[in-house]
Write a protein that binds this DNA or RNA. Sequence first.
DNA 1: GTTGTCCCTG
DNA 2: CAGGGACAAC
Length: 697
Amino acid sequence: MSDHDTEFHLNRQTKRVDIGVKRFVISSASSTQTKQDVLECQEAQLGESNVLRKLLKSGSSYEDNIIPFSGATIITKLLKSNKATRGTGDRELVIPRNAEPEPLQEDTCSNSSQESAEAYLSPLGKISLNHLDSERLNEEYLQAKRARVENIIRGMNHLPNVMATSIGKDCERDLEGETEITVQSFSPQESNRENKRKQKLPQQQQHSFQQLVSTHKEQKVEERRQLKLQLEDMQKQLRQLQEKFFQIYDSTDSEADGGNLSEDSVRSDGMLGEDGMNEHLIQNSLADRSDNEIADLGPGCFLDEAKALLREQALLDGKMAKHEGSLRSKGLMSLHEVGKHLAETLKQELNSAMSQVVDTVVNVFSKPPRPLLQVFPSLEDHFAFNRNNPDFHTANQRLQCFGNVTFPSSLDLFVGVPLPCANDQMEALPLVVRKSASEHHQSSDPGAQIGHPHPSLHPSSLSENTGFISPSFRHPFSLPLAGYSFQSTLGASSTGYSSKDSPGSMDLSRETTSLRTKMASSQHLIRSCSPVLPGSTEGLSPNHLKKAKLMFFYTRYPSSSMLKMYFCDVKFNRCITSQLIKWFSNFREFYYIQMEKFARQAINDGVAAVDDIIVSRDSELYKVLNMHYNKANDFEVPESFLEVAQIALREFFSAIVAGRDVDPSWKKAIYKVICKLDSEVPQIFKSANCVQELLQE
DNA sequence: GTTGTCCCTG
DNA sequence: CAGGGACAAC
């Protein structure tokens, strides 16, 4: 643009100039809005996560309960009953664990008769046979009690084992080091072994006790210690599990709850229906099981039952002191069965609930767009319900969340077609792609178009077009902007978030956003490639946008003629020209918003002298701008851009400090300065493939 | 009629 | 964050 042109443009600037403050509000709202996109994706997960959350919240209630009823408390109860029954002191013996045979090993190796007998001997050698009999019975009862606790713990332990992979290798390693009881997954073999162990209890009583007396006490202490350790480890494991899930889902929750606007818009956007669908799906998946039932079967319920069990035990312990024999045996059997049944039920329910929830989540997210359905035909039938759902927008977004993860192989469909990399910012081109899709729609399925003039009113149109329902569908740009060959480089780094992110900010939301972006890219690819041959490049492509963004590093105010020169592979018409100009207008808008924002921030930070404002490649301002125009960070930003940015920032700073921002057109002068600072765009940008060439350098 | 900016939306 | 509508300047 010549200076004359520049002056021309600037002189035309109206009094409706950016007033600054309000733009911040907008900017902030935009950020919320962006978050909403993520939330919409995550919202789709919320339905599926409800069951998980219920389980975990049951676990939470368990956690709450466990505080007054901690492992130590359970042990205390056990010890109290033990004490009451045996009337012996409960002296803690500090014995190295290694020196002791492990109780479970001992239990599970029932052929180790000698060791087994140890558990049934009095702690004191000088006792009568009657006492011995009584003691045996007590020990038998204690042994059974221990078995019940083991069952309970295994039931608790099973959940983390099922969920396992990401949670706690450390924890598991700790557990392995501490106790054999808790870490092993509860296999059927073990179950059988457990049964065998219990069946062999009477036989064990036949062994002599002489040499075992001395170790009995130690063993009891060891058992208690191990039980305590087990419980502590289980609590730890459960806490880790809960933290893990709440970290994931409650953060989603809180974001959704925190942003009423987002949530409202999500609701009004039809997410309510989507939720309903999810619920329906979950209900289907969980058969007839209601949420309440699931919760009832969760750890909270388990704890209640465990409490009741132990209370019952305590009562029975009291009774036992007076009434030994059949009554106690009967109670013992009953308690044993209750505990075992409880553990089994818990395991089964947790297993089935978790696996079904996981299946449900995976299933819902793996509903592929139509081209992928051809790759995964079996899934199409499986998710037929989704295709009939009128809320295609959200369904499409959900696909975007997981797309490139779930269907990486789908890209193989486009072998031979140059693929855009994930960072080609194709998400910035809904307009371009929509045009392709709409054209595709019109050309490939005219009947549908005739029958349903507005695609959004026709549910199945989405399945034909993989989700294009937008007012802009009818935009006059539709035809001119039909497809363009994708010429971007493959395999470019996808770590474009690097500079701006604080270390802890790579959270799920960001990952989801990234996934969504990538999937959007995949969908662009899918939608755009099919009907358009690589040669017919009359419209604007994602690469053109990327090129325009890179050009912005050199020129903020390109003239129309300049654009025509540099986008020589584009067949210009009014719409294309407008679009390109609009792009640069948007670039500038963002650019100046950032300038003003950082200028005000500098003022707030106490920067006094304009000379103190330096824009370097380490500056946040630069990082933000680079992120915007060079997201993949695969282009070396020219030094001149930094210089201009610094000048612009200083201009904003000075203007604000001088109070010129009270003038509605205060930015006009700044624009006038900046527009003169355009530098020459390198000749390589005139190449149609300049993006590839630039990035290959 | 064209272009650029502001404001807003999704 | 890209794009559309409204609006103003030309």
